[in-house]
Design a protein around this nucleic acid. Structure first.
Lengths: 343, 343
DNA sequence: AATAGCACTCGCTACTGAAGAGTGCTAAAT
DNA sequence: ATTTAGCACTCTTCAGTAGCGAGTGCTATT
C-alpha cells in the first residue's frame, strides 16, 4: 500500500470510516467536524476529503452528498488505523459458557461457536471444521448390513467418527469383516489418517497382496473409508444480516445466499487462509463472494490437539464493526483451540 | 367446513384463487371475467364476490382494489376445488436421478431430496430425517479415547450410525470396553432401538445387577448412547423464497428465518403430521410459523424399511402453486420411501 | 336473476417546489 | 502558505397535488 498520509489526514479518514460504520450514511464535512470535536473547520475538512478522494480512499455517491469509504480505505483503516476494542468481560463469559456447555462432540462445539460469533457480532458466524487427516488413526470397523452393503466406521483418536456406506459386489460374513478390521487396525496403528491412506495405497501395490484375495479386498474397502469427506461448514445467523440497512435491498441478499449455496467457493478461500496464523481480514472484492454483495470476512484459524486446523470467523457488510469484531474472532479462535486441546 | 356454495360461486372462487396465485395481485371483477372467458358480466361476478367476501373467503386490501383469497379460501380450494396437475415426465426424471445419484447414505439422499423439492417447486424444501427408534439394533461399541472419554457408536440395521462422546468418571481398559460391548450386543440382539432402550432400563433395575459393578457400568454407558438425538432437518433453497414478491419485504423474511433458527417449533408440527398418511397441507396460521409470515406447508411422510417415518415437504407463501406442488411432494415422498426400502 | 350504467373511492404515477445537506471555488485572514 | 469564511451551485428528499385507471356498490333496467 503506497499510501502516504499526514497525521491529520489519517485522523480524518479514521473518523469518516468510523462514522460511516456507525451510521451507514455518507458522511459530510460539517457534520463530521461537529461530531468528532475536531479543531478544524468544515472547509478544511473538505480540502482533506478532496485529497483522500483523489487517492481513491473515498467516493461520493453523487455531487452533493457526503463521502463514503472505498474498499481501499477499509483496508488502510484495518491495517493502520483501527483501535481494537478489548473483548469485554461479558463477551468472554458468553463465549466460554456457550462453547463449554455445547456438549463434548466436536460438531456441537463448533456449531455453538458459530452461533456465538453470530450473536456477539450481529453478523453471520461461520466455522469450518478441521479436516482430520492429521488426526491419529484409532480404529476401523466394518459392519455387514446386507449382502451388498457394508458400513465402514473410522474413528480418530480425537473421537471424530466418519462412517461410510459401501456398496460391494461380494458378500462377506460378519467374521470375515471382523478379521479384515483386525488386520487393518494392526496395519494402521499409530499412523495419522493421511499416513494410513498412504499405507493402504502402498500395500495395495505390494506384490504379495495380489495373491491374497481376502486382504486385498480388505484394503479396497478401507481405501474408500479413509478417503476424506470435505470438511463441514457451520453457518449461523443468516437472518441477522437482514438487519443491516445495506441489505434491505433484496437483490444483494440473494447474491449472498446464492454464494452460500455453492459452498465450494467459500471453502476454497477459507482453506487458503488456514495457512496463515492470526486473524485474517478480507474486504469486499478480496472475498470470494460476488463483488456486488459488498461483504467482508474476518477469520482466524484454530488448531486441534492433533494439529488439524479449522477456521472460524464472521461475515458481514464491508461496513463492519472491525474494531470490535476482530478481537471477538481472535478470542473465540483461541478459546476453541483451547477447548479442543484439553482432553 | 360449513361452506355451501353454488356451482358458479365455486367456479369463480377457483378462478380468483388461481389468478391470485399466478399474479400475486388483487384480482378484480372485469379482468377476471375476461381472462377466464366466463359467460358472465363483471357486475354478476361482483355480486358473487360480495357474497364470498361475506362468507369470509375473500378480502379486499382497500375499497377500490380487487379481492384476495383468505386462508379459508385456500383451505376450501385445496379441499374441494384444486385440480391436481400430473407430475411431468421431466420432473419425475429429475427427482429419480438426483435422489439416486446422491449417494448411499441416508443423509445424502435426504439432503438431495430437499434440494430437489426446492428446485422443482421454487420454494423451500424441507426434510426431517426419520428417528430410528424402531430400527433394529445391530451393533454397539465403545472406544476409549482418553482416560475420561469414551466414544459410543451405535449402529442400526439400516446403517444409521449414531456416535456420542461420553465423559466418564472412571477409566476403563480397551479390553473392558470390548467386553461391555459384547455383553450389550448379546443383550440387545434382535431388538429395535427403542426396545433396546427399555431393556437397558429394566436390566438396570434388576437386582442382580446391583452387585455386578462392571455390568451396571456398561448399562449406564449404553443408556446414554441409546438415548435419541432429535432428528436431523434439512432445509434447502432458502434463497428461493426471496424470489416471491410478497417476501420482498424484508421484515417478513426475517420472521421466517427467525422461525427456522429455533427448529424446535417446526419439528413439533412436523412430527405431529408424521402420524397421518398422504399429503398434509397447512395453510397460514395452521402452520407453526408466526402468522405474519404468511406461509404454507405441504408435507408428506415417508417410511424406511424398518417402519420409521420421516417427513418431507415444501414451505412457500400461502399463495403457493398447490396444484403442482402437492403432486410433487407426494411423488417425492413415495420415491424416497421406495429408495429407502430396496436394500 | 342478470346486466348496464354511474357515481364514487382509492392507490399509483408524475410533476412541482421548497428544504436541507453538501460541495467546490474564491477571496480573505492568520 | 495554510486555514477559514462566504457563496453559488448541485443534488436528493419529501410533501403536496392533480390526473388516471382499476375497481366497487348501488340502482334501475332488461
Amino acid at each position: 500500500m503506497d499510501v502516504e498520509l499526514s497525521q491529520r489526514s489519517k485522523q480524518i479518514l479514521e473518523a469518516i470510516v468510523e462514522d460511516y460504520i456507525a451510521t451507514a450514511e455518507p458522511v459530510g464535512s460539517s457534520a463530521m467536524a461537529r461530531r468528532h470535536a475536531l479543531t478544524l473547520s468544515p472547509a478544511t475538512v473538505r480540502n482533506v476529503m478532496a485529497n483522500l478522494e483523489e487517492m481513491g480512499l473515498l467516493t461520493s455517491p453523487h455531487t452533493s452528498a457526503g463521502r463514503i469509504p472505498t474498499e481501499k480505505a477499509y483496508r488502510f483503516y484495518v491495517d493502520s488505523l483501527v483501535a481494537l476494542r478489548q473483548v469485554s468481560r461479558d463477551e468472554k463469559r458468553q463465549i466460554i459458557q456457550r462453547c463449554r456447555q455445547a456438549g463434548a462432540g466436536l460438531s456441537d462445539i463448533l456449531k455453538e461457536a458459530s452461533r456465538t460469533l453470530s450473536s456477539l457480532s450481529n453478523y453471520m458466524g461461520i466455522v469450518v471444521a478441521p479436516s482430520f487427516t492429521s488426526d491419529k488413526f484409532r480404529h476401523i470397523e466394518f459392519i455387514r448390513l446386507s449382502p451388498h452393503r457394508v458400513l465402514a466406521i473410522l474413528v480418530s483418536c480425537n473421537g471424530t467418527v466418519q462412517n461410510r456406506l459401501l456398496e460391494i459386489g461380494q458378500d462377506f460374513t460378519p467374521d470375515e469383516l471382523v478379521r479384515m478390521g483386525n488386520y487393518l487396525n494392526d496395519l494402521m496403528q499409530g499412523l495419522t489418517i493421511s499416513q494410513a491412506r498412504e499405507r493402504i495405497l502402498t500395500e495395495m501395490k505390494n506384490e504379495k497382496m495380489q495373491y491374497d484375495h481376502f486382504m486385498s479386498q480388505a484394503l479396497q474397502l478401507s481405501e474408500k473409508a479413509v478417503t476424506m469427506d470435505s470438511g463441514d461448514i457451520f453457518v449461523e445467523g443468516q437472518a441477522r444480516i437482514l438487519d443491516q440497512p445495506e441489505f434491505s435491498d433484496v437483490r444483494r441478499m440473494q447474491d449472498i445466499y446464492r454464494a452460500f449455496e455453492q459452498k465450494g467457493q467459500l471453502l476454497q478461500l477459507l482453506s487458503r487462509c488456514m495457512n496463515a496464523e492470526g486473524v485474517q481480514i478480507y474486504i469486499g472484492s478480496e472475498t470470494p463472494m460476488s463483488q456486488s454483495a459488498g461483504v467482508s470476512l474476518i477469520t482466524s484459524r484454530f488448531v486441534t490437539s492433533s494439529n488439524n486446523v479449522g477456521m472460524l470467523g464472521v461475515i458481514g457488510p464491508t461496513r463492519m464493526g472491525y474494531s470490535s469484531v476482530i478481537p471477538i474472532v481472535d478470542y473465540t479462535a483461541r478459546l476453541v483451540s483451547q477447548l479442543l486441546n484439553d482432553t
